[in-house]
Design a binder for these strands. Structure first.
Length: 438
DNA sequence: GCGATCAGTT
DNA sequence: CACAACTGATCGC
């Protein structure tokens, strides 16, 4: 029954075309240098980085899609052998270099797959992305939004990356004699390092492979592999540990900065008097974050206000490449999809995005009233289409059924149940034909 | 050697 | 402890 049309960030099944949102390894599981199942559509930058991640990959399989423009792709239906045309537009996801969302139009309707994304509202780049998306959507209605729901819970509230970057500067400046270690992954957080380099007029050490990546990204005079040139080093996150810091401190005073992790988790709103996290949470101050900058702090004992020091040598800062709850909400309000599904379900506190945002959806609105609502007509048209073309998400039909049941529970007003039984890794999505809904 | 899975790490 | 993203060990082929 595998009659897939297209796959997004999924590599296990056979499809007519494959789409890759970005090159983080949790989106490329099943993809390898010996890939031969079919063409892969991605952004220009992702394609540029591709050989580094997959040496020896047959690059003729890559199809470059320019960000912000529509592309037509002809596909042959595996079931009927008839050809159909798919339109796709990649849109900057502001997640890591090359990361895009995909907006699809075709017989199946209009689908938006965000991949991983950060939807900040403050930066110039965010404004461009917003305009691009609005122009792309025009009068069209997104039938299904596949949403990065990593932090889709009101307890996830954190400031923009620009504000956190400035806090990192403050940490470094307040340790003028220390070496600085920053934990990063193989892709992402470049803007933070560029900010440090620019503000402090200092080069940043990276490991040799990362320097190659930086060169591919076009950064040539900022990073170095010579330790003698700088006191700031970006190291692989997996080599960043308490032991590492303690070892380094036997030789030279050194602090670590971890721009990630979840020590910034604040208490869940529905459970106000019971701390969800540890004592770490109490020092985070929302009002400081929501202010303009809010980075100049009182520094008791040399600490910085909303920056968390959770170890003698380690600071944790909430620099996230995923949208916080408020940003996800902004995004859903902007897109106003008819329906939506979360693409991440690994969290033990996973809650279907419909639980929080269902009221913003067309499906909910049209179910309420207005038989002549344009949106409702559209929904019905799409539902008919969906009888033969279904956007399937997940590893197996069985798991997908459970998910559908969950949606039903949520929309009937029952409090969201936790879905730890459904723990799964992040998945991609796949369009299949002749897949009977339920 | 290859991919898949599992157990760790921040 | 929660996450995302990653390494490394192990297993079957």
């Amino acid at each position: 029954m595998e009659k897939g049309l297209i796959s997004v960030d999924r590599w296990t099944e056979h499809s007519q075309a494959y789409f890759l949102t970005h090159l983080h390894s949790d989106h490329t599981q099943g993809l390898s240098s010996s890939w031969a199942k079919g063409p892969i559509f991605c952004s220009r930058l992702t394609a540029k980085l591709f050989p580094f991640k997959f040496p020896g990959f047959n690059l003729s399989l890559l199809r470059l899609l320019a960000v912000g423009t529509w592309h037509s792709i002809s596909l042959v239906s595996p079931s009927s052998a008839s050809s159909s045309t798919l339109q796709v537009m990649p849109i900057d996801a502001h997640h890591c270099p090359g990361a895009v969302m995909f907006l699809f139009r075709g017989e199946f309707g209009c689908l938006l797959y965000t991949g991983d994304f950060r939807w900040e509202t403050t930066s110039k780049r965010a404004e461009i992305g917003r305009t691009m998306l609005l122009n792309a959507l025009k009068d069209d209605v997104v039938d299904i939004l596949y949403l990065d729901n990593t932090y889709c819970n009101p307890s996830y509230a954190f400031p923009s990356r620009a504000i956190i970057a400035q806090q990192v500067i403050d940490i470094i400046v307040s340790h003028p004699e220390h070496d600085i270690i920053i934990g990063i992954d193989s892709l992402g957080k470049e803007d933070l390092l560029l900010h440090i380099s620019h503000e402090l007029k200092i080069k940043i050490w990276v490991w040799p492979e990362r320097l190659q990546t930086m060169h591919l990204l076009g950064f040539h005079d900022i990073f170095t592999t010579k330790t003698s040139l700088t006191r700031v080093r970006a190291v692989p996150r997996y080599s960043f540990s308490v032991e590492t810091l303690e070892g380094l401190n036997t030789m030279h005073p050194t602090i670590g900065i971890m721009p990630s992790g979840l020590p910034w988790v604040v208490r869940p709103l529905e459970n106000g008097d019971k701390l969800f996290g540890s004592l770490l949470t109490s020092r985070y101050n929302r009002s400081k974050w929501s202010g303009n900058g809010g980075n100049h702090t009182e520094k008791p004992n040399g600490n910085l206000g909303s920056v968390e020091k959770f170890h003698k040598y380690i600071y944790s800062v909430p620099y996230s490449d995923h949208s916080c709850f408020a940003e996800i909400e902004d995004f859903v309000k902007l897109v106003q999809p008819t329906n939506m599904k979360g693409i991440v379900s690994s969290s033990s506190c996973y809650v279907d995005p419909l639980y929080y945002f269902g009221r913003l959806c067309g499906a909910y609105q049209s179910a309420q009233s207005l038989p002549h609502n344009k949106r409702k007509e559209r929904v019905e048209r799409v539902l008919a289409v969906n009888n033969k073309t279904t956007f399937r998400c997940g590893a197996s039909a069985g798991v997908e059924r459970k998910r559908a049941m969950t949606v039903k529970v949520k929309s009937s007003g029952i409090h969201a149940s936790r879905m730890s039984a459904l723990r799964r890794k992040k998945r991609g999505a796949k369009i299949e034909e002749n897949d009977r809904p339920n």
